[in-house]
């Protein structure tokens, strides 16, 4: 048992290293991917930030930056989906499946690579946020806990990405999902406090898992926008853990089943 777990980890790392080689072979694409959320931060902060009314005249970046962190975790899903769907359509997944390697390793490798990617994305974003004047006002452990929650959300969405990637018939249909990611991201507290939305829309937005993570992160960073005055908003910390676990509980078994039954 230990040895099969050992092989799963070793094979998983081998598969993940393949993605690291991609980074080295195509640095331009990868670096663009890391800086895209920074671009969003600048777009929203600099272009729209002036029109945002913040309590006590605080900088909009105080609210926006944790929101962009959350959104970046959501957008990471696209990379996962595309990578998984491309491997399926090119037959690479079949080759993996016909090897005597651990079958969990294919997915594990994707997981390791994408989590590393998200850590780099977060580091780039933190640096950009700090440069633009965003600060965390809580303690360092609190800040680390917030980053932990963000990565937990990314981990959960990873399984959504793997599931969709394994399910689509061709890579082109990914575009549809790439478009749908936007309303999911925007219908949350990522950019504005939900209290500024029409009440019914605000209620939906508050129940968005993105909002829970964003709100919980803001609270841990001691940034504005943390208190939302609703049941789900008041329990954002718990929700930021429960939502991702729920997503994993649904999509991990679904992905595992898809993987076993791939029958292109």
């Amino acid at each position: 048992m230990t040895s099969s777990l050992g092989w799963a980890l070793a094979d998983g790392w081998t598969v993940a290293r393949r993605t690291l080689i991609h980074w080295r072979m195509q640095p331009g694409i990868v670096i663009f991917g890391w800086f895209f959320p920074v671009l969003m931060m600048l777009m929203f902060g600099a272009l729209l930030g002036g029109a945002m009314e913040m309590p006590d005249g605080q900088s909009y970046y105080e609210l926006l930056v944790p929101g962009i962190f959350t959104l970046a975790m959501l957008f990471g899903l696209e990379g996962t989906m595309t990578a998984v769907a491309t491997d399926v359509s090119k037959g690479v997944t079949d080759r993996f499946r016909s090897l005597p390697m651990s079958s969990a390793a294919v997915v594990l490798g994707r997981c390791i690579a994408d989590m590393l990617d998200s850590v780099v994305t977060l580091i780039v974003l933190i640096a950009a946020g700090l440069a633009l004047g965003w600060r965390w006002h809580g303690t360092l452990p609190e800040a680390l806990a917030a980053f932990g929650l963000l990565l937990l959300l990314r981990f959960a969405l990873l399984w959504v990405g793997i599931f969709i990637g394994l399910s689509v018939k061709n890579v082109q249909s990914i575009t549809v999902v790439q478009v749908l990611v936007w309303p999911v991201g925007f219908l949350s507290s990522a950019f504005v406090m939900t209290s500024t939305m029409p009440s019914w829309l605000g209620a939906i937005a508050q129940w968005n898992p993105m909002s829970s993570t964003a709100t919980a992160a803001r609270s841990l960073f001691d940034n504005p926008g943390a208190v939302a005055g609703s049941w789900i908003g008041g329990h954002a910390g718990a929700a930021a853990v429960i939502w991702p676990l729920l997503i994993v509980a649904v999509f991990l078994p679904l992905s595992a089943r898809r993987f076993r039954n791939l029958s292109r």
Binding site: H22, K90, G91, D94, S98
Partner: peptide, 19 residues
């Protein structure tokens, strides 16, 4: 079985970014 077979599928199943 997998230890003893090789598979060449309909599409060249290689990673195009890798050498």
């Amino acid at each position: 079985v997998r230890r003893r077979i090789g598979l060449v599928g309909q599409y060249a199943a290689v990673d195009e970014i890798l050498t």
